[in-house]
Nucleic acid binder design. Sequence first.
DNA 1: TCCTCAATTCGCGTAATTACGAAATATGGA
DNA 2: TCCATATTTCGTAATTACGCGAATTGAGGA
Lengths: 107, 107
Amino acid sequence: MDQSFAIDAFGALAHDTRLTIFRLLVQRGPGGTPAMEIGRILDLKPSTLSGHLATLKRAGLVSTERQHREVRYAPRFDAVNGLVRFLLEDCCGGDESACAGLAHSEA
Amino acid sequence: MDQSFAIDAFGALAHDTRLTIFRLLVQRGPGGTPAMEIGRILDLKPSTLSGHLATLKRAGLVSTERQHREVRYAPRFDAVNGLVRFLLEDCCGGDESACAGLAHSEA
DNA sequence: TCCTCAATTCGCGTAATTACGAAATATGGA
DNA sequence: TCCATATTTCGTAATTACGCGAATTGAGGA
C-alpha cells in the first residue's frame, strides 16, 4: 500500500455515484454483481456506469470476472483494510495506550 | 454518518498533501500539532497549508483548538471509524460468515 | 497603543473531473 | 455468418479543484 494507491482509492470513493456503487457491491457480497444489474438498480446510463466502474477498478477497489456475456464486479475488502491500515500507520507514534480502542473498527 | 459526509471525507483524503498532513497528525497523536509546525515539516506555503487544513476540518477529519497564538490540529479517529463502518454497512447482506475476518481491521 | 507572529481569506490563471451521446467491441445463440 | 445483448471507448462542454501571492484578521508582548 503506497500513497498514490491510497489517493486513487479515496478519490474513487469521493463521488456520490461511485460511493453508492461500492456500498451496493459490499452489500451484495463477494460473489459479485453484473454491471448491467448495478446500472438498472441505480438508474445509470451505460457509458456513465462503465466510466465509474473503470475508476473503481483502476483504484483497486473492485475486481472483475467475465461470466458469459456479463462482467461481474465484486468489492475488494482487502483494499478497504489496506486503506485503514495505511491511514492509521504508526498511530500516536506507536504508543498503543494513546489510541487504544480508536484504531480498531467493528464493522 | 451520511453519504455527503463520507464523500467530503474521502475527497479530503484524496490529495497528496492532505493525505500526508492527516497521516502526520495521526502519528503525532491526539494532542494535536500547531499549523505552523506542519507547514515547516512539509515545506508548505501558509496559504496552501491553511486551505488544506480547512478542507480537512470541513470534512470532519480534524479538530482544532486555539492555544495562545497557535492553532493545534488533531486527527479525529472517530471519523475514520465512522467511514469504515459506513463503507461496510450491511456487508454481505448481513451474512457474517461471508465476510468474516474481512470487515475487521487490526491497525 | 504599536508591533510581531500565526493563520486565514481573496483573487486569478491553470489543470483535472464530470456526464453522456454516439460509435466501437465482445460474447454467445440461431 | 448474422444478430442481439453487454460493455467499453471516444469526444466535448460545463464544472470544479489547484497553488500561491497579496491583503487581512487574531492574539499577545512591549
